[in-house]
Structure formats: C-alpha cells, structure tokens
Amino acid sequence: MSELPKQAERPEPLAVYFVLGIVLGIIFIKSEVASWFRIQEMFRFQAVHMYGVIGGAVGVGALGVALLKRLGVRTIRGEPIAFPDATERRPGIRHAAGGTIFGLGWGLLGACPGPIYALAGSGLAVMLVALLAAVAGAWVYGLLRPSLPH
C-alpha cells in the first residue's frame, strides 16, 4: 500500500542524502524561497522571483530527466531507474483536493515542507511548532485516508 518509490535492495549511503539536504537548506534560505514575504509576493503576482526559482528548477530537472531517459542511464548500482508509473501519473480527486488544501496552508504559513525544516534550523524556533502541526496534519490524513475520495 505504500506509495513511495521502489526502494533499492541494499542499504544506501545516507551521508550523501544528508549532504544533499545541507545544500538544499542553504539554497532555501539564500534564495529566500523560505521567506513568508516571498510567498506573499508570489500569490500576489508582484515579482518574477518565485516563478523564476520554480520554473528554473522544472526546466533543468526536465532536461536532466530527459537525458537520463534518452541515454538509458542506470542507477549508480547499475539498476534501472524507476520513473513514476501510470498510476502515479493519473490525475485524481486527491491531487485537486489535496493540492488545494496544501495551497491554503502554504498561503498562510508561507512555507512549504522543505523551507519549514530550513527555517527551524536557522534558529526560528517557532517553526518547530509549524513542523509539529504539519506532522499532525499528515497523521490525521493517514487516519482519515480510508474515508477520503482519491
């Protein structure tokens, strides 16, 4: 029932993901995508900044994924890469409803999950409360999941 990507067989070197996280945390702060002010600006369409960050990420990400596919690149362990399958690609109620609920929260808190972690790390301790609230939200979703339309 887990909807997570298929896992590799052998344990992964977690240090690489940890370092990747450090780099991401620095980017979230230094590019100000973790700023409540920037999210307010984005939802008011008053600057290109956030659209530039997200658009630039999508463009480079898409180019990279297309190259991996075109060249038939395998993972570092020589296994085939599991790209999202048909089930994951199909739009459903969950994407519209869940997405809208997420957006309502994003507009209020001004931080999506990555920036919540980064802000907490930057010393903004009140963001630990936001993180706890987000974990509670995920838990309640898990509880209500059987009765929600997907």
């Binding site: 869940g98 997420f102 309502l104 929260g105 994003w106 808190l109």
Partner: peptide, 11 residues
C-alpha cells in the same frame, strides 16, 4: 497553516 500543509501534501 502548518496542519493544512501537512494534511494537503500527503493527501
């Protein structure tokens, strides 16, 4: 806000 972010993201 935090609750909706967590609930919505998992939904």
């Amino acid at each position: 806000g935090g609750f909706l972010v967590g609930f919505g993201a998992r939904y």
